[in-house]
Computed example of a mutant assay.
Amino acid sequence: MSRYTGPRVKVMRALGVELPGLSARKTERRPYPPGQHGQARKKLSEFALRLREKQKVRLNYGLTDTQLKTLMLEARRSDLAAGTKLIELLERRLDNVIFRAGFARTIPAARQLVAHGHVLINGKRVDIPSYRVTIGETVSVSEKRRDHRTVVEGLARTDMEAPTWLAVDKDARQARVAALPDETSIPFPIAVQLIIEYYSQRL
């Protein structure tokens, strides 16, 4: 399945959660699933519960099913618990770091900044959104794009705080990776174990 490009608030309503990386808009005006029967109560099957958790992660981070499956395989090979490692790998993506540092309103906006060559790692341009940051690296916005609309709008967003594993200097438009993220770093409610169970039958 390709990367999602449809209505963002609609999909958040369907999943029952706000995904800050997908959209800066809120679902509070209509906090129920879309459609004629959106407000009707219905019990989800075990499969539906696991699929929903997987979709939350896939859509928030803007991944394809293949990309998420590859990350899950890597997480399972790690010495850490698979769920913890999966969240670490997702959070360390460069497009997510730009978003979490506050230099873009959403991950799609951050991905565009990276892909267009406006992001530097330790002073060198990196244009790969999936680049995985490591401890000690400094991520910054290029001098020419410090006051780009995407960056200014990201810094104006007040409902997101930078995670503790990033040391952010908003004035300098840079962030240093002070530690590796863990399962508490994810900015929305998620049942990681259900994602593990979803893939346990498919890998």
Rank of each mutant, 00 (worst) to 15 (best):
M1Q: 13
S2R: 13
S2M: 14
R3F: 03
Y4S: 05
T5I: 12
T5V: 13
G6V: 12
P7D: 06
P7R: 10
R8G: 01
V11F: 03
M12C: 11
L15P: 00
G16K: 09
V17G: 02
V17K: 02
E18V: 02
L19Y: 00
L22A: 01
A24G: 07
K26A: 09
R29D: 13
R29H: 13
R30Y: 11
G35I: 08
H37A: 09
R41N: 13
R41I: 12
K43T: 12
S45I: 08
E46W: 08
E46L: 11
F47L: 03
F47D: 01
A48S: 15
A48I: 13
L49G: 03
R50M: 14
R50K: 15
L51R: 06
L51C: 08
R52T: 11
K56L: 08
R58A: 00
R58I: 00
L59F: 01
L59Y: 02
G62A: 03
L63S: 00
D65Y: 06
D65N: 09
T66L: 13
L68C: 10
T70S: 12
T70R: 14
T70Y: 12
M72T: 06
E74C: 02
R76G: 10
R76N: 13
R76S: 14
A82L: 12
T84K: 15
T84M: 14
E88M: 12
E91V: 02
L94K: 01
L94V: 06
D95V: 06
F99G: 01
F99Q: 00
F99M: 00
R100P: 00
A101M: 06
A101S: 15
F103T: 03
A104V: 05
P108K: 00
P108E: 02
A109M: 01
L113P: 03
H116P: 07
H118R: 08
L120E: 04
I121K: 11
G123F: 09
G123Q: 11
R125T: 09
D127K: 15
P129S: 09
S130Q: 07
I135M: 11
I135D: 10
E137K: 01
T138C: 05
V139D: 06
S140Q: 06
V141N: 04
V141D: 01
K144T: 12
K144P: 06
H148V: 06
V152M: 13
V152T: 14
E153L: 10
G154C: 07
L155Q: 15
A156R: 13
D159Y: 08
D159N: 14
E161Y: 08
T164Q: 11
W165I: 04
L166S: 04
A167K: 14
A172Y: 11
Q174L: 13
R176I: 05
A178K: 07
P181W: 04
D182H: 14
E183H: 07
E183P: 03
I186M: 05
F188I: 05
L194F: 15
I195Q: 01
I196P: 04
Y198V: 09
Y199H: 11
R202V: 12
